[in-house]
Design a protein around this nucleic acid. Structure first.
Lengths: 351, 351
DNA sequence: GATCCAGACTGAATCGATTCAGAAGGGGGC
DNA sequence: GCCCCCTTCTGAATCGATTCAGTCTGGATC
């Protein structure tokens, strides 16, 4: 069997407490005895106090959980998410915390279980759609948590770091509108559950379950509404996933069909890059160029000349970690909105 | 205080054991009683068994640790590492395990402590250079572990999944040599501790501490040695970090100087892309084109037309997870070497 | 020489569950 | 009516540490 603290204590002939102190409170015993204890531990191949037992007794774990609603591997596939995680992990590291990436199954019951079984001191919930399940489970565990979007309904313990999605989206839409575009398509990921790729009948932005997408669509709509372009005049295109391929697939039929829109406003850079892929491929067959915008300003956006909205990804992650690990005394400070900036590149041109 | 299992037991008037059974062994009690218990738990806001306590008693945690020798955020910055992690996390998810990303400080003592304090069932050690510290700490804890490179010295418990670095590197070097290149530079990351960026005096590949880089350099050298080009005839360039910028900086002086090499063989795609950046920038000032090769075949490599060696990143991650979570009975099966393929694109041309 | 004190170490309670041998109760078979 | 078995539930041991209120020892103080 693996040796325990007790075994070390027996070997040296001291009490368990003393061995424990040798590890985590050196001032509580003489240096000489401490040396003897550590020597004996080495002799016995004792690897130091068991982390689980320590966590149980101490009441904290030294890890924060990161929850993703979609497949865990999505976390690593989306460039914006990757940068967010980089910021989060850097800050966590500084606070001596590790990151527990928690797979969140689709099935609500199992998702709940995943939250309930995670040994962590708090949760960072990235990109939650309507996952009240998870939030509810977290609250019940009375753990601190932070989300990357403002909550549906305010909750005392709810901290978040986000951007004003709607206002940010409006700026890019206004830019497109100012270029004279009026026949415009809006592209988003999974705007209704199980919706197929391509044109989607959507009564209003408010019908979209995913809060981020909803906010961005609403912002797009605001800009055009201000110019008298009604929501019903806008084309809504659905992508089945936040990937380049899904973006490309979503717009293919519409862009190569009759009377295509003159601009496509995407809810993410990844989708927008997919649109550019489709345009590049369809190239000669197109009647006229189509303007495209993204959202996030990931690295690839610059290379592709994509007009987009920049949001500070790493900083978002860093602040999320800090909100969790060094919570502000003032509860109002638990709600952080970051600045965004419109980045105009070559993918948008006058209509 | 947060309610415990005991509180639920008291509320219902049954024993602690029965409540425990209600959660994890439903067949051990009548359905009716179980319902009553779960109801009471809901009533009391009991969030279910405490994961830490459960882990302590059960003796396993449901998480595997991922160790990175460099900054944790590097994990998210290097595209190859990201794909590896995606594969790893997917497989872990399938086995019901979470991933604990463990920040590994530079200081050996603290690095050791990080390993000792991580509550995990096993470790995946990515990209370990000479971090015997960490491996030793893991072995002492008697936890299973898997590395992404063959170990220095065989150890019974050591499992790994890797590629034949040396042979793979040789194929790309042979390709370059076949194109007639003889004046060649080899580019790697941190080939000697604290080495400055740029040309490096290196007696032999064997002097490089990082095993992956060492293997690749040796493979490059093999190909040229077979043609009579001695190690001392090759230029060695050091990058201070595995990033595009570091790659660009490492080669800048050499490529724009007198008598530049006709080809640069990099130990990673990221570095190679940096070389391409430098070439693009220096463009007109160059006497003649320089061939460039990378290693890994990340997504950006295809877009950049980079000749490189492809290795199956996701599969590597997947196998690593499986080696940990479903260890093969036959210990020999704990050593997996994956196939690689030379991918020739436009970045290599005849000398 | 009695008193006090600081330093070094110990004992026992505690963290929150799981597990397993066994007790109680009820029903079926003969 | 007796025996046995099965289901349902309980009690107590256990996982491996941390913590805190003491105890003990030896030396300084007056």
């Amino acid at each position: 069997m693996k040796p325990t603290l007790q075994d070390v204590a027996n070997a040296v002939g001291v009490s368990r407490s003393t061995v424990s102190n040798a590890y985590c409170r050196p001032d509580q015993l003489s240096a000489a005895l401490r040396e003897r204890i550590l020597d004996a531990a080495r002799q016995l191949d004792y690897p130091g106090p068991n982390p689980t037992a320590r966590s149980l007794r101490r009441g904290f774990v030294g890890a924060i959980g990161v929850l993703f609603t979609s497949q865990l591997s999505y976390a690593f596939t989306d460039p914006f998410a990757v940068r967010f995680l980089a910021g989060l992990s850097g800050a966590a590291e500084r606070h001596g915390s590790a990151l527990l990436l928690v797979p969140l199954p689709d099935d609500p019951a199992r998702a709940r279980a995943a939250v309930e079984n995670a040994a962590v001191d708090g949760f960072c919930v990235y990109c939650v759609g309507n996952e009240e399940w998870a939030l509810d489970a977290i609250r019940r565990r009375a753990l601190p948590y932070v989300t990357t979007a403002a909550p549906e309904e305010a909750h005392p313990a709810h901290r978040y770091v986000g951007i004003d999605e709607r206002a940010a989206a409006r700026t890019v839409a206004e830019h497109v509108a100012a270029l004279g575009h009026r026949r415009v398509a809006l592209l988003g990921d999974t705007m209704l559950p199980d919706a197929p790729p391509g044109p989607l009948r959507l009564a209003a932005p408010a019908d979209v379950p995913h809060p981020t997408t909803r906010g961005r669509l609403a912002g797009f709509a605001d800009a055009f509404a201000a110019l008298g372009v009604d929501w019903s005049d806008l084309t809504v295109l659905n992508a089945t996933g936040n990937s380049r391929a899904a973006g490309a697939a979503a717009v293919a039929a519409t862009l190569t069909g009759d009377d295509p829109p003159t601009a496509v406003l995407a809810c993410s850079d990844v989708l927008a890059l997919g649109v550019l892929d489709t345009l590049a491929e369809a190239g000669p067959r197109l009647a006229r160029p189509v303007s495209v915008t993204g959202f996030d300003d990931i690295a690839e956006a610059a290379a592709a000349g994509l007009t987009t909205v920049r949001q500070p990804a790493e900083e978002k992650g860093r602040i999320a970690a800090e909100l969790l690990l060094a919570p502000p005394a003032d509860p109002a400070a638990g709600h952080v909105l970051l600045d965004t900036a419109l980045v105009v590149r070559t993918s948008t041109r006058p209509a």
